[in-house]
Design a protein around this nucleic acid. Structure first.
Ligand SMILES: [Zn+2]
Ligand SMILES: [Zn+2]
Ligand SMILES: [Zn+2]
Ligand SMILES: [Zn+2]
Lengths: 142, 142
DNA sequence: CCCATAATGAGAACGATTACCAATCGCTGT
DNA sequence: ACAGCGATTGGTAATCGTTCTCATTATGGG
């Protein structure tokens, strides 16, 4: 337990419930697409909430550390955030509009675990994400 | 076929076989760990090869575009490169030393394909990577 | 209400990657 | 072997997402 200097997540004692965090939390709860920090910042400003960009980054990062949001890296290096369900799951993400479906895959979990064991690797985690075009974007793309 | 201004990969007509590209190709063939451009640059300089950093980045990117190397993004945003086998596969990567084992997962392919179909997504790709500690690094870490 | 201090935000700093562009060098034809 | 074209190189400036700095503000327990 090192001395904590980083901003605390919503679930920890000592945190403060600020206007900015409420705005962020509400915004995340209202969309199911993976969204970049920059995009969240723009959305908040557009809806009249005054929140600094640094605060958006800080808070999203804190929420990610606390497991309150899932993260995803795009090909061009942007980190996307999304408020997801509590169970372990993976994502089927539309690469055009970001709309996301949570999917689970017990067979994948088993496969990953077995591969790790077979090769003597320890402390193994996995990254499993599916990217495609959602029905709406498929139609729009002709 | 737009006019190509980017450097061409080894397999395309019109390319030139330069000292720098030979050095890069040889270096990649000699290691099985995922490596960053910066690391490749350092390794080449250490072995006496004079290759500019921009050239390392350019050439690795071109090889990645041509499918001659696989790429991977670390949590801290670095892109790693590795010369892999030609078949479709995934990776079991040591997060300490980078040593990598190519693994295949027919069950994962089927699962991914089914999930995409079930939700009406088209043009779906998947990212599946396993990260852990290899036997050697597990032992070293105590 | 008070006040310690958590939190904010504007801007500087950062780090990986890319763009620029003048100097070089590989390749093809002579 | 030679010349010329243009692909390639590489030092450096520019980009861009993200993090850091730190003076200022605002929360919430007492
Ligand atoms: Zn999720
Ligand atoms: Zn879509
Ligand atoms: Zn590979
Ligand atoms: Zn290792």
């Amino acid at each position: 337990m090192p001395t904590e200097t980083a901003p605390r997540a919503f679930g920890e004692k000592g945190r403060r419930d600020t206007r900015q965090r409420r705005a962020l939390r509400d915004h995340l709860a209202a969309t199911d697409a993976f969204t970049s920090a920059q995009q969240v910042y723009d959305d908040l400003r557009a809806s009249g909430d005054r929140v600094g960009l640094a605060t958006v980054y800080r808070t999203l990062q804190a929420m990610a550390d606390a497991g309150e949001v899932d993260t995803l890296r795009t090909d061009d290096g942007e980190t996307l955030f999304r408020k997801c369900g509590p169970r372990h799951h993976h994502h089927l993400v539309c690469r055009s509009c970001g709309v996301t479906i949570e999917i689970d895959g017990p067979s994948v979990e088993r496969w990953a675990s077995k591969a790790a064991d077979d090769h003597g690797f320890s402390d193994v985690t996995h990254v499993v994400e599916l990217f495609g075009l959602c029905p709406a974007c498929t139609k729009a793309a002709g």
